[in-house]
Write a protein that binds this DNA or RNA. Structure first.
Lengths: 376, 376
DNA sequence: ATAGCCTCTGAATCTGCTT
DNA sequence: TAAGCAGATTCAGAGGCTA
């Protein structure tokens, strides 16, 4: 074509500045594919890079069943240095591709998120928030040697400290959050059930598929309808599916053809929301479950206090860790209540009472105080 | 003093191995003071280091020169480098001072926690968890351009990947949490009201005083009564106050004499909890070992008795030497339990049951009888 | 039809003592 | 130092099967 040779007139067609392939999955190495994209062309990036999990042996549940670990080759790196080099490379390309007003989201766990966060800062990105995805249903810690790993971390960053004009739909988020300011901690279930992509064998198609609710929160917070969202680690295509549903454009990069095919089929099946519907998904009310340890921790009852039942037949001592001691037996308020009565089970909140000026009162009253305070 | 010269006889008095100054605030530069402490002498470290270059005006390079305020990317990198060097220096000293079974907690925000986490990993620490402190009452985001910063991050790390035997009071934490295993997200109010230290002018004595509930959770989770807790950035002394209350020993390092004085006064006013309130809760894994042979020896079960599992699917015979026979296979209660189920491993004490008047009962009950008898 | 029970599974750096 | 083995360890949610 004649005008092709007169390249200067049509910058978008020059090899050095090709058009952005919209609503497309690019199959290939993330960094190589990013290099082909035009600079300053993307409004939002969501990246779910390899976590560099360093798993030792097998892990079994208490029932001896084997945990299906993420041991894929793409998650293996020689060293922290190798992981850091990889991280810098893709972050650098992402920064080139981002519009001046664009922002980046990265998700990770403690295995990799500190590397990613440091690299971000070193490259000049400006962190706007770290956001915690709290899982309602995380995998438990089967050996009881650590805290249940119940969250992952997202970093939200602008191209630089001087970046202005990035999108943050504050009013909409606030309206969708019972008129409270959107917070940096989000409660969202993991991806399971019908949402989880399955292969022909009925097994999960991708080991680390993210929930659509998480991506929806990100896109609704930090992009506008019609914006271009880039996902350099496209995987099962959650970003693309949610982008299509919410009226955003997407560009995905994925190395694995099987993942890319599964993602494409998934996205093809997505029906975009109506323009009117692309509003806020109201935040889920959080379950106000209260632990007795919290009651003690907050000083509502003193460690060393004595509790009794309504008829003063039993007496137990409150311990600093929120357990009760009945003689030499230590356990939860419920367990110790059961032991005291010789019963199978017991609701400790209503069984145990404390002395007050007005007589005995169930410790449930303390729980109400915690709930009232946390709600305010 | 004569015996001082004969240093070899009293290693604890040699300069190279001074005694640990317990329940003391050391006034001076954190790194210099840590260097004076004996190696492998501390059970737990809680560190609340200066958060960041942008907000703290007093960040200094290792040579004590002041880091200038930052605007351009290079200076920013410069100051990150200075912060990283400072971080590595104190982390290195902390690692030296930690016992092999000791663990470290560090708290930070997105301004510094990624630097700290990376440095930790680079120095060989092994991250056990990252923990999110969710604030019930965070400072609102006034400009509405970001998410309300409603959390801070703690990193819990062991000295290395091979570090075993660190303290984690799993059972007590679980009992204090409605019998659910403790998670990596903690909901705790910020420090305010009467707990907040005030100066003579009625203003807050320290800008980043941490809530005692947070420290209590850390100490109750990862230390035992009598353990030594080191805080290299002592500040308002929350670590010391909580350590004293919970029956732990503390060592604090603080550069600012005013902070140290306020902390000392605060700690002096703390009344320790009663012994009953803080006594180490008995953990199953620390209960004395009992051999099944002992159970048989003491006549608690007869050789030749038949054991079965809870669903009566398998049957094994008790042998006089304390082994079990399943058909022609002979082995420990655990091994035979595993063989019966075709499993890798099995806890024979809970798997195997015996017939009693009240129905099937796990043979663990017999172990309890042995333990009770031995304790008496 | 439904309640209840059983099974399966999820980004996991998941033991510790003795020989 | 590495192997062997005692023995401690799980929560929410989805889906399937049975009474």
């Amino acid at each position: 074509m004649a005008f092709r040779r007169n390249g200067a007139a049509l910058a978008a067609e020059r090899p050095s500045a090709p058009a952005l392939p919209l609503d497309t999955i690019l199959i290939g190495d993330c960094i190589a594919e990013l290099e082909k994209l035009p600079p300053a062309s993307v409004d939002l990036v969501f990246a779910d890079p390899p976590y560099n999990l360093q798993l030792q042996g097998d892990l079994r549940r208490p029932d001896q069943s084997l945990v299906d670990a993420v041991d894929d080759a793409w998650d293996q790196f020689e060293s922290f240095a190798a992981y850091d080099a990889f991280t810098r490379a893709w972050l650098l390309q992402v920064r080139r591709v981002l519009k001046p007003t664009g922002t980046l989201w990265v998700i990770g766990s403690y295995h990799n998120i500190f590397r990613v966060g440091s690299a971000l800062q070193d490259l000049g990105y400006w962190i706007l928030n770290d956001v915690v995805w709290r899982k309602t249903n995380p995998m438990p810690n089967f050996r009881g040697r650590r805290f249940t790993n119940a969250h992952e971390t997202l970093i939200w960053a602008a191209r630089g400290a001087d970046a202005k004009g990035y999108t943050f739909n504050y009013e909409a988020l606030k309206a969708g959050n019972e008129d409270l300011q959107p917070r940096s901690d989000w409660l969202i279930p993991i991806c399971s059930g019908g949402e989880r992509l399955k292969g022909d064998d009925g097994r999960k198609a991708h080991p680390t598929q993210k929930p659509e609710a998480l991506l929806a929160r990100v896109l609704l917070a930090a992009s506008k309808p019609g914006d271009v969202v880039l996902d350099p680690f496209f995987g099962s295509g959650t970003t693309g599916a949610v982008a299509k549903r919410l009226g955003r454009r997407f560009v995905g990069v994925e190395r694995d053809r099987d993942y890319a095919a599964a993602a494409q089929a998934r996205i093809d099946a997505v029906a975009p929301d109506s323009a009117a519907a692309i509003a806020q998904a109201p935040a889920k009310r959080e379950a106000p479950r209260v632990a007795f340890a919290t009651v003690v921790e907050r000083g509502l009852i003193q460690a060393g206090s004595r509790l009794t039942d309504a008829r003063r037949r039993h007496e137990a001592v409150v311990r600093a860790d929120g357990t009760l001691a009945l003689g030499s037996v230590v356990g939860s308020i419920h367990r110790i209540g059961a032991v005291a009565q010789g019963a199978e089970a017991c609701n400790g909140w209503t069984f145990w009472h404390m002395e007050t000026a007005a007589g005995l009162a169930p410790i449930d009253a303390l729980r109400e105080i915690v709930r009232a305070g946390d709600a305010a």
